[in-house]
């Protein structure tokens, strides 16, 4: 009797170097019988030359499943490929750079805000504003300027919706959305460019 196997490719998985990728790793499978056989079917072994990213196309999985269950009907749902990320030994030197980058951002943004203040003649504007409000002529209107400086930080934190680890409300911050979009663009790029099945070049004789 003809059975139907439902297949849904996962979006992104992580594997060890030299791992063998099986159907169950890259896809969720629903079937009436022999589900263990199907899930354990190997499709690909990660090699050195694959570097960081391998794309497993759904057609590849189909081919493997046809061998195991030649008489069954295979239905694929969802994305048509899985991004396999080969995780080599976690690079620790990344964290060495953090203090340097931190200092870079700290000093750089401080300098940038000073340049901005000079550029728009903030000192004169604030002196005048202080005179308008209080009626007194002051060289350094610190009563205005110190709250202003603290407000600068509060404004940035408000915008990004993060107060150190704590968040102000449930919604994702623009930064997280931005990270997500950037990751999606990267994924889209590797799907198009690393997927041998999706590309066919004129000079590709093999």
């Amino acid at each position: 009797m003809k059975e139907t196997i439902f297949l849904k490719m996962r979006h992104r998985i992580q594997v060890q170097p030299n791992a063998t990728i099986r159907v169950g790793d890259v896809a969720q499978v629903v079937a009436n019988k022999r589900i263990d056989d199907i899930v354990k079917t190997p499709i690909y072994t990660v090699q050195k030359k694959d570097r960081n990213i391998v794309i497993i196309d759904v057609m590849h999985v189909m081919k493997a499943l046809m061998a195991v269950a030649p008489h069954d009907d295979i239905q694929s749902l969802g994305p048509s490929q899985t991004i396999v990320e080969v995780v080599y030994e976690k690079k620790r030197w990344g964290y060495l750079y953090v203090p340097i980058v931190w200092l870079l951002l700290f000093i750089g943004s401080g300098l940038a805000i000073m340049n901005f203040h000079e550029d728009v003649s903030m000192q004169q504007v604030q002196q005048r504003l202080y005179r308008v409000i209080t009626g007194k002529e002051v060289d350094k209107p610190l009563w205005f300027q110190i709250p202003y400086s603290l407000g600068l930080g509060i404004g940035m934190i408000l915008f990004f919706n993060h107060f150190f680890k704590k968040r102000i409300n449930e919604e994702p911050s623009p930064l997280e959305v931005e990270m997500f979009q950037y990751q999606q663009s990267l994924d889209q790029y590797v799907i198009m460019h690393e997927n041998k099945e999706a590309m066919r070049r004129m000079d590709d004789d093999s």
């Binding site: 200092l103 951002l105 401080g110 300098l111 940038a112 805000i113 400086s149 940035m156």
Partner: peptide, 11 residues
Amino acid sequence: AMVLGKVAGSL
């Protein structure tokens, strides 16, 4: 880093 840098730079 950026937030504190802005506050420190401004002060």
